[in-house]
Each structure stands twice: as C-alpha cells, then as structure tokens.
Amino acid sequence: MEKLKLNKYNIILASGSPRRQQFLQDLQLDFTIDVREIEEVFPNILKRTEITDFLAKLKSKPFTDLNDNDLLITSDTIVWLNNEAIGKPKDRNDAIKILNQLSGNMHEVITSICFKTTKSMKLINDVTKVYFKDLSKNEIEYYVDNFQPYDKAGSYGIQDWIGYIGVEKIEGSYFNVMGFPVHKFHQEMLKY
C-alpha cells in the first residue's frame, strides 16, 4: 500500500515515543523522526492545556533549520489531578505514589500537538477524563514492577495491564490517553 503523501510536506516527528511513532505509521503517513533535547520546564502559573501547549511549542524551538517543505510535529502529554500536573515518574517509589493518588479518582489526560512550518505554527489539544477504581497495594506494585511505566505521564499506560483491570470508564479519546489524540491530529493534517 502506498503511503499518504500530504501535499508538498516532509513530515518530521520530534518524539521518541514509540506510541506516537506507531500512530503515524498506522495512519499510513510518510515521516522521519528527529528528536532534539530540551529541558521540559514550564512556568508554575500555567494550568491544564496551557502547560501542554507551552511544552509542545517549547519542543519545536530547537528546530530553527526547517526547510520550506518541512512540517514539524511536536507533542506533550500530562495527567492533571487535584489542580496539579503529573508528568513521568522519577523512579519506582514515585510511580507507586502517583498510582496511589490516581486510585479511586478521576483525572484528566491532556495532550497538545504543535504543527510548525517555516511560515506558521498551530496548536491543538485534547482532554480525556479517566476514572480509576480503588487499586490495591499489590496491584500497584505488581504493575510498576512488571511494566516499569517510567516513560509514561501519570505512571501508567491505559493499553497496559493496569488499564485492563483499573480503568472503570473514560470520557473522551482513548488514544489521547495513550498520548496522542489521533482523530484531531488527522483532521488537522488534512489542512496541510
């Protein structure tokens, strides 16, 4: 099957996330991967989508060498719980602490995507509500020790074992919880 070529653009995905890379492959897009290091720090006054918008845009800043036919895609995901942003866990203890906070609660998963060319920049975002059952100490420790969710915002992947046994319901995009609102991304890509 021939890959979808979007007008005149070379798509560059600035993400080391295997899930984001897989989504673009599954959409049959032709793209390259170029990840550039940046310190992911945001001002404390920012809330919810302001944080992910800021970070997605920040990740595009090192790309000062885009060609006229390049379309850069950057993205960021956070978990928002009790008026606080939760990113990736630092270690095992942090992952267990975060999952204890999520246990029995509703949290939001927020993702922003930045589309950047030499002439324009556009930000989109999506919010999904996720409801966890009360997780036992054993369930949390089993998950952390066997799945090591250290590269995931909120210390979990909904597509993992913990999603099967712990998520009671979601309101919004399932794929957004995996870190990429594919439906909104595709809609936006059709404009390029």
Rank of each mutant, 00 (worst) to 15 (best):
I78T: 08
I78P: 12
K90F: 13
S75F: 09
W80G: 02
W80T: 01
N105K: 15
K57Q: 13
K57H: 11
G87T: 13
D94V: 09
L58E: 10
D68F: 10
N105A: 12
D76A: 10
N69I: 00
L99D: 02
N69C: 03
T74F: 06
N105I: 00
S75H: 07
A56Q: 02
S60M: 08
R92C: 03
A95L: 05
I96T: 10
I96L: 03
M106H: 06
D76C: 09
L81D: 00
I86V: 15
P89W: 06
G87W: 09
L71Q: 06
L102I: 05
P62M: 08
F63S: 10
P62R: 00
S103P: 02
I73D: 07
I73Y: 02
K57I: 01
S103E: 05
R92D: 13
I98D: 02
K97R: 15
N67Y: 07
K90G: 05
D76K: 05
K57T: 03
A56P: 05
T64Y: 12
N82M: 00
L58Q: 05
A85M: 04
I96Y: 07
A85H: 04
L72S: 10
I86C: 03
G104Y: 05
N100S: 12
T77A: 02
T77D: 09
S103F: 03
A95K: 08
T77Q: 13
N67D: 13
L102T: 03
L66Y: 12
N93Y: 08
K88L: 12
N83T: 07
K57S: 11
A56G: 07
K59P: 12
P89S: 11
A56F: 10
N83W: 00
N83F: 00
I78S: 04
L58K: 06
N93Q: 14
I78G: 05
T74Q: 06
D70F: 01
N100I: 01
M106V: 15
S75T: 14
S60D: 11
L99V: 01
Q101N: 13
L72D: 14
D76Q: 07
E84Y: 00
L102K: 01
N69W: 04
R92S: 10
T64N: 14
E84S: 15
L71P: 13
I78C: 04
N69E: 14
L81R: 06
R92I: 14
Q101I: 02
L99Q: 01
D65Q: 10
N83Q: 14
L71H: 08
N100L: 06
L81F: 01
V79N: 02
L66F: 11
L102N: 00
N93P: 01
I86N: 04
N100W: 05
L99W: 03
N93G: 11
V79D: 05
E84C: 13
D94R: 04
I78Q: 06
G87L: 10
G87Y: 09
K88V: 09
L71V: 09
T77N: 06
R92V: 14
N82P: 06
A85Y: 03
T64I: 13
L71A: 07
W80E: 04
N93H: 13
N82C: 01
D76S: 08
W80M: 01
N82K: 14
A56W: 06
T74W: 06
D94A: 09
K61I: 15
L66G: 11
N83H: 11
N93S: 12
S75Q: 08
D65C: 07
D70R: 01
S60P: 08
L71F: 07
N93C: 04
L102W: 01
T74H: 04
A95H: 11
A85I: 00
K57D: 10
L66D: 10
T74V: 05
